[in-house]
Amino acid sequence: MEKSTQRTARLGFLVILGALIFTVTAYLIGQKQDMFRQTFVISVVFNNVNGLQPGNNVRFSGINVGTVLSVEIKSDSVIEVMMRVRESVRPFIKKDAVASIGSDGLMGNMLVNISPGSATVPPVENKDRLRSFSRIKTDDILKTLNMTNENAAMLTSNLLEVTQQIKHGHGTLTYLLYDSTMRQDLTRSIRSLRQAMDQTNHLLAEANGIVEQVEKGKGVVGWLLTDTTTAVHVKTTLANLDKTSARITLASDSLQEFVSRLNHDPGLLNALLRDTTMRTDFQETLRNLNESSVKLNENMEAMRSHVLFRGYFKDKEKKAKTGQKP
């Protein structure tokens, strides 16, 4: 009797033990899936991993091909991400493949995306380092400003070309030089445009600085309330921006005037018509200029509606009203 109980107890112990071992094994196998598969390791360096963690998926053209092995800080802005990737996809990942950090869906986990690279380049090897691509996080305002800047730059280069041609007196352009009024007009408009450009650039730099500070997150409201110097700075910046846009409008107005004069003066028109290059150049210049002024105005509107700057514009409106009254 006693002996059989002993045996039963031993059987029970073995059953429990077996179940435990089975469970642990199942867990381990589930954890280390890639344990049974041929893999290789590649690394990539980012300066911001946006919360990527070891264990996150690695995708190649949208297919899960591996997991993140480790995320290590190498220096203050260099973070090395090691990835374990299935051997079977190695031939498709070329040496010039680019890795980027993305997220899985709206609320999904972070992941590393690898885009294939060019077909002619040899495939990656174990312990290779891929190139990384970081998305520039920019505020909407900054983006629009940048575009304005680009447009303005294009504008100046076009104008420069025109003036160059005028200076060297190529072909029919020399006709234009006889008309002194027009020359003066042109010079004036170019000068004002240059000025406007300089100021816009200056402003851009300043706005960039501000946005950066905001992004660093000093607590936006707190920053606006406590740091009066900055507040003043913003105010002047915005005032300048306002002025610039007015200047550009002015410049474009004078150019418009010039063009309308051209239209009314048949001699001039004829002379210009013969040189088609110059005509298209001028038309493009004009269009660009218009566009840029529109952009700048848009900019102003955007800023006006921006929470941070709302106070300033209200002040300004109030001032304008009080200024009108007396």
């Binding site: 039963t8 107890a9 029970g12």
Partner: peptide, 9 residues
């Protein structure tokens, strides 16, 4: 353990 063993049996 005895109970486990008996259930297993």
């Amino acid at each position: 353990f005895v109970t486990t063993g008996q259930i297993s049996q």
